[in-house]
């Protein structure tokens, strides 16, 4: 066990030395891998932020209940009391048609148009905040409220959240596909790097075999080399995404505030960062593995 650990330490040290002996190549290799990985990692960062934003906005879904235009005050009051007694509602707010008309009259540009209308075109309405926010419960309430007397229309304000959710799922799939394609590229780059390494180290490999090195001993430094290069690529990608996040944070925050949303871009979550590094190292290792199978002679 001790000897095994020692050999791994030696192999990793050797891989470090080989990487350090050609700093320019190492740097360029890390940049190529890093840029390839930065695309899906950056996409993941944006997605994670969007999802956070979507969750916050969608956190208070509302149901708008519109009465018929000719509903009497008594009928409206009846529906109001039914809504208030309903176990699924948390908050019910009546928006009288007179108030809607007054508000719109005050609004810039629309006032004159409203003024010219012969009668109030707006119905009485309720804004209902449901207690249970699950899509199934919302849907059930929507159809139940629609059945109340003199209720003309029920609008579920969470419909667009569903659309956003579907869009996010699609985006996530696209990021995943991008990650797969660029992961294959990473394996191919490492494959080639290790091929060149094997050529460069041909003499050392030959001498080591004559001195009694096992296949595992010969291969170990190459595995470490591939994994370390992948890891370096992962680090470059992580830094690139971090840089982009910090650069975008201010303008995105300003844009959000124009829409009245308090939002700031977060850096890549820890779990995604760990995944990025682990995946980069593993792909480098896999590239080395394929290259060793193909290029390391058996003699």
């Amino acid at each position: 066990m001790k000897g095994w650990l020692l050999q791994h330490r030696q192999a990793s040290a050797q891989a470090f030395r080989r990487l350090a002996s050609t700093p320019l190549n190492t740097l360029l290799g890390a940049l190529v891998l890093g840029i390839a990985l930065a695309l899906p990692a950056g996409g993941e960062m944006l997605l994670a932020n969007f999802q956070r934003l979507a969750q916050r906005i969608a956190a208070t879904p509302q149901i708008s209940v519109f009465m018929a235009l000719d509903a009497t005050k008594k009928e409206v009051a009846e529906v109001e009391s039914r809504l208030r007694k309903h176990p699924g509602t948390r908050e019910v707010k009546l928006v009288p048609r007179e108030e809607t008309l007054r508000r719109l009259k005050e609004s810039e540009g629309l006032g004159e148009v409203i003024e010219s209308l012969p009668r109030n075109p707006f119905p009485d309405a309720f804004v209902v905040v449901p207690g249970d926010e699950s899509p199934a419960a919302l849907e059930a309430m929507r159809s139940e409220f629609a059945g109340y007397p003199r209720v003309e229309h029920v609008q579920l304000d969470s419909a667009w959240v569903k659309k956003l959710d579907a869009l996010l799922r699609l985006a996530r799939l696209a990021v995943g596909l991008l990650a797969v394609v660029l992961g294959v590229a990473l394996v191919a780059v490492t494959f080639n790097t290790i091929r060149l390494q094997i050529l460069t180290q041909a003499e050392e490999v030959e001498v080591s075999r004559l001195l009694g090195a096992t296949d595992a001993y010969i291969r170990r430094p190459f595995y470490y080399f591939g994994a370390l290069q992948g890891l370096a690529g992962g680090a470059v990608a992580w830094l690139a995404v971090l840089g982009a996040t910090l650069l975008l944070r201010l303008p995105v925050g300003e844009l959000a505030s124009l829409y009245g949303i308090d939002f700031s871009l977060h850096i890549l979550p820890l779990s995604d960062s760990i995944l990025l590094f682990a995946l980069a190292a593993w792909l480098g290792w896999a590239g080395a593995w394929l290259s060793l199978i193909r290029h390391l002679s058996e003699n």
Partner: peptide, 11 residues
Amino acid sequence: MLPLAIAGVAT
């Protein structure tokens, strides 16, 4: 050192 490293002799 190489043959000893290969044989896993402690440093």
